[in-house]
Amino acid sequence: MNPNKALWEKGDFTRIAAAMRESGEALVDGLGVTPGLRVLDLGCGDGTTAVPAARRGAEVLGVDIAENLVAAGKRRAAEAGLDNLRFQQGDASDLRELDDESFDLVVSIFGAMFAPRPFDVAREMTRVTRSGGRIVMGNWIPGDPTLVAQVLKTSAAYTPAPPEGFVSPVTWGVETHVRERFEAAGVPAENVVCERATYVFISPTPPTDLLQTFKHYYGPTMNAFEAASKDGRADELEAELTGIFEAHNRGGADRTEIPATFLKVVVTKP
């Protein structure tokens, strides 16, 4: 099986996404989504940004590598009565089933950054975007002191080294790499704008509950706990992650409200 597909089908990202809905709505509010706009949400999960975009009248296609998340997205669309929202399985590195210049807006929030072959990802996103259209990415930043970057960094420290040639997903959070990838896809450097932005994980339960959700349902963290258990270090990993979740929480003892910084990338296709 495709390792990336296996990673995201391993858990159940819908459990994490439940804490991301409010920020997903806020992000879509800032994208200028209008009725009839053709939108591709790449690495869409169960629709954290696809559903709000469809509610604003856009014609939305959500594509994700994980079949369980595609199924969950279809259920959400049906329950919301959104016949302008479709979901299908696909790989951000190879969107051969999608036509050239078929979308006005391509969105990928913490999605396509995890796909292999980042230059192929940039090329494919650019190819399916119409001239004058936009690509908007949200990417976690390596070494950033906020939540998700620290969770990924800590998890990686307990996980076996990746295979030779592996490109870390968080390189998408480095502006020079982003520009290099889109320039190779034919986008001039001046058409790529990067800025830091904030996503907030919100839950009515304590931050330790959100940690348990990551432990049991988030692929990278699940892998880290499996590896740590084999080495007898699972308690050590849990203690480290507990410290991270509690230190970053702004919601008090019984509520989770944890901000996480990401790199927002806006590309205008020439």
Rank of each mutant, 00 (worst) to 15 (best):
residue 2 N to H: 14
residue 2 N to T: 14
residue 2 N to F: 10
residue 6 A to N: 14
residue 6 A to M: 13
residue 8 W to K: 11
residue 10 K to F: 11
residue 12 D to K: 12
residue 14 T to Q: 12
residue 14 T to S: 15
residue 14 T to Y: 10
residue 16 I to D: 03
residue 24 G to F: 05
residue 25 E to A: 05
residue 28 V to E: 00
residue 29 D to C: 00
residue 30 G to K: 05
residue 32 G to N: 08
residue 34 T to H: 02
residue 36 G to T: 01
residue 37 L to Y: 03
residue 40 L to S: 03
residue 40 L to T: 02
residue 41 D to F: 10
residue 43 G to N: 05
residue 43 G to M: 08
residue 47 G to L: 10
residue 48 T to R: 09
residue 51 V to E: 00
residue 52 P to I: 01
residue 52 P to G: 00
residue 53 A to M: 02
residue 53 A to N: 04
residue 57 G to L: 02
residue 60 V to L: 02
residue 60 V to N: 07
residue 63 V to T: 11
residue 64 D to W: 06
residue 64 D to Q: 06
residue 65 I to C: 12
residue 65 I to A: 13
residue 66 A to T: 07
residue 67 E to P: 00
residue 68 N to F: 03
residue 74 K to G: 15
residue 75 R to G: 03
residue 78 A to M: 08
residue 82 L to I: 06
residue 85 L to I: 00
residue 85 L to N: 00
residue 96 R to Q: 09
residue 99 D to K: 14
residue 101 E to G: 04
residue 102 S to Q: 04
residue 104 D to L: 04
residue 106 V to W: 03
residue 107 V to K: 00
residue 110 F to C: 12
residue 113 M to T: 07
residue 117 R to M: 11
residue 120 D to Q: 15
residue 122 A to H: 04
residue 125 M to N: 02
residue 128 V to T: 04
residue 128 V to H: 08
residue 129 T to D: 07
residue 129 T to H: 08
residue 130 R to L: 06
residue 133 G to D: 06
residue 134 R to F: 04
residue 136 V to P: 05
residue 138 G to R: 07
residue 139 N to E: 09
residue 142 P to A: 06
residue 148 V to C: 04
residue 148 V to R: 01
residue 150 Q to H: 09
residue 152 L to H: 11
residue 154 T to S: 12
residue 154 T to F: 09
residue 156 A to E: 13
residue 157 A to I: 03
residue 160 P to M: 08
residue 162 P to V: 10
residue 168 S to N: 15
residue 170 V to R: 06
residue 170 V to G: 00
residue 172 W to N: 08
residue 174 V to C: 01
residue 176 T to Q: 13
residue 176 T to L: 08
residue 180 E to S: 15
residue 183 E to L: 13
residue 187 V to L: 11
residue 190 E to F: 10
residue 192 V to S: 03
residue 193 V to C: 03
residue 195 E to P: 01
residue 201 F to T: 06
residue 203 S to A: 15
residue 204 P to Q: 09
residue 204 P to R: 08
residue 205 T to A: 13
residue 208 T to V: 14
residue 209 D to E: 15
residue 210 L to T: 11
residue 212 Q to M: 12
residue 212 Q to R: 14
residue 215 K to F: 09
residue 220 P to C: 10
residue 220 P to R: 05
residue 220 P to E: 09
residue 225 F to T: 10
residue 225 F to R: 06
residue 225 F to D: 07
residue 232 G to K: 12
residue 237 L to H: 06
residue 238 E to A: 14
residue 240 E to L: 15
residue 242 T to K: 15
residue 248 H to L: 15
residue 250 R to C: 13
residue 250 R to K: 14
residue 255 R to W: 11
residue 256 T to H: 04
residue 262 F to K: 02
residue 268 T to I: 09
residue 269 K to I: 09
residue 269 K to A: 02
residue 269 K to Q: 00
